[in-house]
């Protein structure tokens, strides 16, 4: 039983404490790095996804054979008809018909139009104020009447149903 009574031993080197501190700091930095990269990447992908979705909606509805063109809101040559847009903006029934017939599933969208000479931005009445929306804009030409076609900006807002 002599080895039980033996009280000699090799103690851990004193340097192990600072070493552990260094390791802990290293770990912390590493975790922060990874977490940052991951969250930044995720955020970027999400925002690009959202923007791409709204851009896709914008391109689709603005195309020459799109539903807005059939409705006369988009005229020949990709010009927006201001009076037709104005007629539509408050008509909820017509807006939901446009969304339904435009062939875009799973998301809803609303349009905003601003052009030179108009006092306030024209907005579709279906745009919610509380939902998380993504937007894409396009510089367009706006037809006012035979004599006037002015530059403007069309914005599409999309949100999940």
């Amino acid at each position: 039983m002599s080895f039980i009574k033996d009280e000699r031993g090799i103690s851990e080197e004193f340097t192990s404490l600072p070493a552990l501190t260094v390791v802990m700091i290293g770990f912390a930095i590493f975790f922060v790095l990874i977490a940052n990269v991951y969250s930044a990447y995720n955020e970027r992908v999400e925002s690009i996804d959202k923007h791409e979705a709204s851009n896709f909606v914008l391109e689709k509805i603005m195309s020459a054979d799109g539903y807005l063109a059939k409705e006369g809101i988009v005229r020949e040559g990709g010009i927006i008809d201001a009076s037709k847009f104005n007629e539509t903006k408050g008509d909820e029934k017509r807006i939901s018909e446009i969304i339904e017939k435009s062939g875009i599933k799973g998301i809803e969208f609303g349009l905003k139009l601003k052009y030179e000479g108009c006092k306030e931005q024209l907005e579709w009445c279906n745009i919610p104020s509380s939902k998380d929306t993504a937007a894409a804009s396009k510089q367009v030409a706006v037809y006012i009447n035979e004599a006037k076609t002015v530059p403007g900006v069309l914005t599409v807002l999309v949100w999940e149903v």
Partner: peptide, 18 residues
Amino acid sequence: ISVMHDAVLFCLMVSVAG
């Protein structure tokens, strides 16, 4: 090998990963 060597190696690898 001192534990410090381990720690320094670890820090080096974290820096490389960074």
